[in-house]
Nucleic acid binder design. Structure first.
Length: 758
DNA sequence: GTTGGTATCTGTGGA
DNA sequence: AGATACCAAC
């Protein structure tokens, strides 16, 4: 038997070796799901399938990367050739190749939610609709859900039920906004997040030049992770690629109905039931992974109890043989502030008593806004922490501004980028001018960019506008000869963004400048990174850089070497595990969220979210709630969460919680002062550490690098060149670096920073 | 067109 | 409470 198969229990092994035909794996928390997925891929490769014939879809880049790293441990660097990535990133990659078949440019922009919102807002304004009734978020959600259910504008208009809903909501023109929105995105050469899925489906459905068959033939094996979180559209794409005449139907989906937590964005557990139905006559095999290798028994049993309160579920019993372990601790606090203090105290205590390091500890909350009190106390106690989520780096205003310049250079039709920077830094092109320009663009059915020459404006505004266009053009003329970093630096300077920020001497202004410098450093790193990751011949242009960051989130950043306590929302914690987990803010109207309270389904989803939260813990689980907390700037009083009562008392540590309650209020002494600490807080951004001293490092000419040599790499340290392959002008060296995890790496010699040692 | 002040809204979740 | 949006005065 292959050695990796010995790492598996009997059911896991079956799930790995049943490679042909449709397979459904129902995987409880901590049941070795990732292991099954990765070994399955490795097994398929070992049986002779080419890695690039395997498509593995995940929800986060992090999950995809982890999967590749683990496949690499079994099959080596062939792992890089597997098509493994998020739905969004893989589909974006395919769409770049096929875009023209759909009438999109291959360098299309990806609109983030802010771009979408801004565009919808403009359309509402242009149509003279009342923005108070036509709430942007409501409209956006409506459009998103239509796309996720494969209902294009035309079908929407013909759908009596949808139209009636809109009439009832007093928003009868929603469908017109939807229609205009799609047209404007296309005009701008832009796709929003939903489009990455929707347009891919459209491509396969319309099937120009037999593109459908091309991908049906290319992917011999398809795997889907977190299947319970797919929406209708994603599932239909899976069907297109696997369920056709003469298909081998080698499709494996892995999921857990109890961990479905993205219903709000259109995910539906129906997909699991449908999958069983759709592949029934093709001999579908179902495997249930029920042994939990992560948590001790009090935790696993509590989780089982909680989830039985949900109506519908696939029957399964998760069990663990790790022993009882510690009971669950419940902390009751009077205020959100006290909650912060008590949690921080408990962390200190656990660190001392159980020798936990920071990175073995996580605080999980329902909403990102809850992080603040915990940050305050952890900082006071000098405990390092890292907040995930919230405003990400790429969502900061100054970063988005500079990125908008990049977008415009790559795709001048990009309407949202144009609006964002046409008058930033200030160059005398105000609201009125932009409105006139928009009117011309709408009338002549062309982009804002193309309308610049035709619009009628006062001489001053017109000249500024022309000068703006010209400066962008000057950047464009350089985009093929300069790499991303060189061009980005020029743009930052010539656009006057750097000057503007340097002139601002406030603390915030300096922070903004720092962020821009950070962005440029990031681009530098992107350019200098010589490691082969996905596709070969990845170029270092600004366009490629943009594609890389469009689907990036904070969570995707590589694990930091430093030792931080993790603070994140329960949603982002899915798939992670920690020795000690704190689930905080367990109050009615917060967790479960007030948004969910009107429906059974809503509460059930919150309960699954709670289930996900508590099953992150390996050994220590602490739950907390506060009687009162500030929300909307006002003190609110909430009952303890119903979920607390759904755990049997015998799993809960008895000297805490409920009975202590009344006495507690006097115990609080110092309230943290809000002043003094404020501006000091800096979000920690991970930094790659160098393994070689840059002062003495002297890169050798890459032409001299040969197999068998010992070399030094700035980031990876000493290594031995195993082999060199690739085309003449794009040589790739496989090098074994003994000082790093995952030691075997593929380095592009074209960009290599290697010093020959011997 | 720009500036500075006030009004308003937000604050489930994320690719 | 904090950020953003909007509006009136310059």
């Amino acid at each position: 038997m292959k050695p990796y198969l010995l790492d598996l229990n009997e059911i896991q092994r079956k799930a790995v070796t049943t490679t042909d035909g449709p397979v459904l794996v129902v995987a409880g928390p901590g049941s070795g799901k990732t292991r099954v997925l990765t070994y399955r891929i490795a097994h398929i490769i070992q049986k002779g399938t080419k890695p690039w014939e395997i498509l593995a879809l995940t929800f986060t880049n992090k999950a995809a990367r982890e999967m590749k790293e683990r496949i690499a441990k079994v099959v080596g660097d062939k792992a890089n050739q597997v098509w493994a990535g998020t739905f969004h990133s893989i589909f974006a990659r395919i769409l770049r190749v096929e875009a023209e078949k759909l009438g999109y440019p291959s360098n299309f922009t990806i609109y983030d939610s802010d771009d979408s919102k801004s565009l919808i807002k403009n359309i509402i304004k242009e149509k003279n609709l009342n923005p108070e009734i036509y709430n942007v978020n409501a409209i956006r959600a409506r459009i998103s859900s239509a796309k996720s259910n494969i209902i294009p504008p035309k079908a929407y208009r013909e759908n009596a039920e949808l139209m009636e809903q809109d009439r009832f909501a007093k928003r009868p023109y929603t469908v017109d906004i939807y229609t205009a929105y799609m047209a404007r995105c296309k005009k701008a050469g832009a796709m929003d997040f939903d489009d990455l899925l929707y347009q891919l489906y459209a491509l396969l459905y319309k099937n120009p030049d037999n593109v459908l068959e091309k991908y049906q033939n290319r992917f011999k094996y398809l795997l889907v992770d977190e299947f319970q979180d797919t929406n209708h559209l994603q599932y239909q794409i899976v069907l297109k690629l696997t369920n056709f005449k003469n298909s081998m139907r080698n499709v494996c989906v892995v999921g857990d109905d109890a961990q479905s937590i993205y219903g709000f964005r259109g995910a539906t557990i129906e997909n699991i039931l449908d999958f069983e139905k759709d592949f029934k006559q093709h001999n579908i095999q179902v495997f249930k992974l029920e042994q939990n290798y992560r948590s001790t028994e009090h935790i696993v049993k509590a989780a089982n109890e909680v989830i039985t309160f949900n109506k519908r579920q696939i029957k399964k019993e998760i069990w663990s043989n790790k022993g009882d372990g510690s009971k669950i601790k419940v902390i009751k606090a009077q205020t959100d502030n006290e909650e912060g203090k008590r949690i921080a105290d408990t962390i200190v205590e656990q660190k001392n008593r159980h020798h936990l390091s920071n990175k073995e500890i996580a605080i999980l909350y329902r909403t990102n806004a809850q992080s603040r009190v915990f940050e305050e106390y952890l900082r006071r106690y000098n405990i390092l922490y890292k907040v995930y989520g919230g405003l990400s780096f790429y969502q900061r205003k100054e970063v988005k501004d500079l990125v908008a310049y990049f977008r415009l250079v790559v795709n001048p039709s990009d309407e949202e980028a144009f609006r964002r920077v046409v008058n930033y830094p200030k160059r005398g092109i105000g609201k009125a001018s932009v409105e006139k320009l928009t009117a011309v663009a709408v009338q002549t059915d062309q982009s804002l960019w193309d309308s610049v020459e035709q619009v009628n404006l006062g001489a001053r505004a017109k000249n500024s506008l022309l000068a703006f266009k010209q400066i962008i053009q000057s950047f464009q003329s350089k985009k093929d000869s300069l790499n991303a970093y060189e061009l980005a630096t020029i743009i930052a300077k010539k656009s006057k963004i750097l000057d503007t920020l340097k002139a601002d001497n406030t603390i915030e202004g300096m922070g903004r400048l720092e962020n821009i410098v950070g962005l440029l450093d990031g681009i530098k790193e992107f350019v200098e990174n010589d490691e082969v990751t996905e596709e070969e011949n990845e170029d270092k242009s600004l366009a490629t850089y943009l594609q890389n960051i469009a689907l990036h989130t904070d969570l995707d950043e590589k694990k930091d070497i430093d030792d931080f306590v993790t603070l994140m929302s329960v949603h982002s914690a899915k798939g992670l595990e920690f020795k000690s987990v704190f689930v905080v803010g367990l109050e009615e109207k917060l967790f479960p969220s007030f948004m969910s309270l009107d429906t059974i389904e809503g509460i059930d989803e919150e309960r699954r979210l709670f289930y996900v939260a508590i099953t992150r813990a390996e050994q220590f689980l602490t739950l907390s709630y506060a009687n009162s907390r500030y929300r909307y700037g006002q003190m609110r009083y909430n009952e303890p969460s119903r979920f607390l009562n759904e755990i049997d008392i015998r799993h809960i540590e008895s000297n805490t919680a409920m009975r202590q309650s009344a006495l507690n209020s006097t115990g609080i002494s110092a309230m943290p002062s809000r002043s003094g600490v404020k501006g000091n807080f800096k979000r920690v951004t991970p930094n790659t550490t160098l393994m070689a001293d840059p002062a003495t490092f002297k890169p050798s000419p890459s032409s001299q690098i040969q197999a068998g040599m010992k070399v030094l790499h700035l980031k990876f340290g000493e290594g031995k060149v195993l082999s060199i392959d690739g085309s003449e002008k794009n040589k790739v060296a496989t090098i074994f670096f003994n000082k790093i995890d995952n030691p075997q790496r593929r380095i592009m010699l074209k960009f290599a920073k290697l010093q020959i040692l011997s």
